[in-house]
Design a protein around this nucleic acid. Sequence first.
DNA 1: CTGAAAGCGCTTACAG
DNA 2: CTGAAAGCGCTTACAG
Lengths: 324, 324
Amino acid sequence: MKITIGFIAEQSGVSKSTVSRYLNGGYVSEELKSIIAYNIKKYHYVPNQFAQSLKAKESMMVGVVIPRVNSYAAQETLMGIETVLESHHYKMMMSSSSLSLEKELEAIQLFDQQKVDGIILLATQITKEHTNLFNRLSVPIIIIGQEAQGQSYFVYNDHSAGYIMAEHAYKQGYMTWDYIGVGESDRAVGILRKQGMYLMAKTDSDIKVHEHKGDFSFATSERIAEEILSDNLPHCIICATDTIALAVMKVAKRLNKDIPSDVQIIGSGNYDITTLSYPELSSVSFPYRETGFDAAKALLELMHDSDKKFQVVVDVSLVPRGSL
Amino acid sequence: MKITIGFIAEQSGVSKSTVSRYLNGGYVSEELKSIIAYNIKKYHYVPNQFAQSLKAKESMMVGVVIPRVNSYAAQETLMGIETVLESHHYKMMMSSSSLSLEKELEAIQLFDQQKVDGIILLATQITKEHTNLFNRLSVPIIIIGQEAQGQSYFVYNDHSAGYIMAEHAYKQGYMTWDYIGVGESDRAVGILRKQGMYLMAKTDSDIKVHEHKGDFSFATSERIAEEILSDNLPHCIICATDTIALAVMKVAKRLNKDIPSDVQIIGSGNYDITTLSYPELSSVSFPYRETGFDAAKALLELMHDSDKKFQVVVDVSLVPRGSL
DNA sequence: CTGAAAGCGCTTACAG
DNA sequence: CTGAAAGCGCTTACAG
């Protein structure tokens, strides 16, 4: 049978109100407390959360929507978020959109219906539908990774990331670059990083850049790398992400190129695996974990003061290693 | 203001029952349908999930509890689970315990309260409390990674993993091994893999094994590797996990050892990054994704036939590469 | 095909 | 300190 508050009340010889008060820390005599406690234990009573939430104000849960489960950036960000939520006794619920925008929207809406106290979205793209949904939400939301007009967000300085990679190549004396980018639907990675790179390239008219359109996948990156390296010439390859860079490195090794004398490689993201390759991969560091931490703190504030707005740009920095 | 079913009914000039019926596919005249639809749209009405679930039977959600967010095994398993849930129109909610057994128990209980339709636990340890909780759950649960008496579970053949690593070392002609293990609280990784290795070692009395007690962390593994390699002798190192193996490889390179001529290394797990190192890491492959897939399928069955019981042992296989 | 009413399991003023 | 009662937003027989 189903153990309800009414059953516990009955067994304890008190009213439901009293049991409810016991559960929520209201006035109950010591005597009743112990007998109620006894029965709750005896029957393994667990309050029905739906019934509670129908009245209650706070669920002490925050929902986090991530683009995919095997993303280094997502993992790190989650760990930062988790740290602050935990210390404030909130539970973190996660939902992955598997890179489907539709599922992403659904997940956000589901969290809203579930009456979480706040939502964090690790975004890859902000569409008109996103904006509409954001405005209808009954709980605060913070977006990480992409700008969203009128909302609170934390974005990385992706423009600077592109510039920094280019500048490093330039300072090492390389004047002809291959740039492997990703699609422009991801504004931060697809557009801003590339723009940053070109801004730097324009500072010296001797610089030549060959642009290649790629995507986030390892396989596509390998294919592009094979094309680039097929001419047996030296190449300085600037990659929009570390995944791309790692794929390039793998192909270069397969073709017996020496890194960094034949082929120079730099990526962005500073994934943990950049230090496992040989040579280690030069990269641009994005403070994912700290940003997750800060965003969660900000969300906590928003939950209590919905007039606030956070729109912060997080700095990135060069981490030169062996590959360039 | 809050848009409820009552408000929509009022605006549409019908009763709440009719709106509810509209929502749930009951009898409603075409005429009323369109006017209700109109108002739902107009006011962006979204049913309160708590109120629904108070009555409803199914939530179409399954909860997955993972030990930590940055685990390769967890990621892969999740992707397998996701594939089947998605195709059956279930939503996947994830919760991480951050390796805290207490949080793990809480998360399971929370999912149960939330009336998910089923739970999958990626386990690292099964305690008495776990068993008690499992028996009290009102929804089916499947455990992956550890045996749980009386429950449905999918475990890997960890004993075989240990044996396979040892056998490979033996066949390559190495007779003196260093084995780096993890704590025994994780029965599968800590005990079974080690036992499998020793079982193989016992087949030839010339085999010597030096056992080292480590843990899952990269840092501890590096420390142990430094100890082992400090004698400047050759070493054949069998590692309970790929993380440990990767750490050993890093230290070996730092000490300018050649792999595999000075130092031989093998791990378990077949993480994706095993192919990024140079040389690539030999390992034992665990079919994480397929197991997630199968476990989710099994859960779906359990949800409709709670008498079933799944207790399956999944095979693992050697993947020899450059490091041993 | 439609609506009034009871009920899901809890919380919360309110009166005592 | 305690209990009766109303209410949270929905669903579901039941009668019409």
